[in-house]
Amino acid sequence: MSAPEQSQTPASKMILTMGVVACVCGVLIVGAFQSTQEAIAENKRIVLERAVFKVLPGAATVRKYAATPAGIQPLTGDAVPEGGVKFYAAYDQSGGLKGIAAEAAGKGYADTVRVLYGYEAKCQCIVGISVVSMRETPGIGDKIITDQAFLKNFEALDVRVNPEMTALANAVKTVKHGSKSNAWQIDAIAGATVTSKAVGRGINDSAQALLPKLVAHIGELQP
């Protein structure tokens, strides 16, 4: 052990410096978090409302719920109880139930394609979709947002639940472009089959999980 050639920084000084810097930074971060929290929550609410109103035109308010095997329960935070599926109930101006919106996700060509779909209890069908997020190829996969013929599939997509209330009566299926023959089928976009199928699969998975639990209790949602 040779003696240090130059004055060495004492350990206490190093720890003190890092401690003080960490404390100041901690205060800054928590301050920023607290002061932006409200604006961020408000932004999220607006984004959600806009998306729900798009798939269920005519809706005026949105409430969050979870459908569990035991029934429907309102959600306050983001935590969904085990075995539950999150959905949004949309009400019109007079307070009547307009429809249900829920999120569906399917693996697309580049990444997961997430869509929000609107469900109407009257016709037991999906009445509209809107893309939440995707990274599909511009000009090809992103036609799912603009292709009118494809969006027509979701004006009255049949998602009736079977009499035993265990699953959909007919699974939602994406079929080859031009070969749609039933109300529960989705006519794929020519050249964008992978993305079309991702939407179909996502909706099928989500509807199979949500609707059997929801339909039996949908009366509880009426205010």
């Binding site: 930074c25 800054l28 971060i29 920023a32 978090f33 932006t36 604006a39 961020i40 932004n43 984004v47």
Partner: peptide, 15 residues
């Protein structure tokens, strides 16, 4: 720290 501040600020401005 400053990156975290920017992160919150951008969320507050535009999601």
């Amino acid at each position: 720290t400053f990156v975290t501040l920017v992160d919150y600020l951008i969320q507050a401005v535009s999601l």
